[in-house]
Computed example of a mutant assay.
Amino acid sequence: MGKPAVPKKVLLFVSALYRDKEVYYNSLDSLEKIFGEILIESSPKEWNYSDYYKPEIGSPLFKRFVFFKNLISEAHIADIKLKTNQIEGKYSENCKRKINLDPGYISTAKLVLATTKDYSHRIYLKDGIYGEVTLIFKKNTFCSAINTYRDYEDLENIKLFNLARKIYKELLID
């Protein structure tokens, strides 16, 4: 019989999808106050993978990934999603978000996203939050999993996730 283990320490990141740079930087300030020092902040990249967010946030849309230096327990990702939802609400206007913040984490084996949307490949965590293994680490790189979002499959983003994983492994040793 297997024995339950203590949740692992993992590398927290938040993806930010936005139109307005000021809203992004205000949200980033809120994220730093809650999660601490930023380890990596990607450059903005135009996001045109879907029209899903355009009616709410507008266009053109940009996406950035922000990784935090303080490692978290993987058990806390649902609570973190609830906090990022509060930040989204803070910067909403007329019941429309101006930014979409999706937290996730990187471990040595996978990249996991937290979401409020249930689907066949997601598992319920708590408080209306689901978890999704979005990328799997095998053969020395992150690879797609079932239903991986196209922007997470982007080679430039894969390189970023691989770099973040490498830094995460160094943080585990320190």
Rank of each mutant, 00 (worst) to 15 (best):
K117E: 14
Q86C: 14
A114K: 00
E37P: 14
I34C: 06
D154I: 01
V14L: 01
Y24V: 06
E170F: 10
A164N: 01
T108L: 15
T134K: 04
I167N: 09
V66R: 01
L31M: 11
T134R: 03
N140F: 11
L135P: 13
S30D: 15
N140C: 14
R19Q: 13
H76D: 15
Y91C: 13
W47D: 11
R64A: 14
E153H: 00
E32M: 12
L17Y: 00
N100A: 07
Q86G: 07
A114T: 07
G58V: 01
S43E: 15
F65Y: 15
Y49M: 06
F142T: 01
E22R: 03
L28F: 11
V66T: 11
I99W: 12
N70F: 10
K110N: 09
Y25L: 14
Y124E: 09
E132D: 14
P44H: 06
E132G: 05
T84W: 02
Y18V: 09
R165F: 10
L135E: 02
D151F: 08
K166Y: 12
I40W: 08
E46R: 08
N70D: 15
L71N: 00
K159S: 05
I99K: 03
K110C: 07
I99C: 10
T108A: 15
K166S: 15
S144H: 05
E56Y: 07
Y25C: 09
N157E: 05
L82P: 08
T115R: 02
Y49W: 10
P7H: 00
D29C: 14
D102T: 15
T116Y: 07
W47R: 03
S144L: 09
K9D: 13
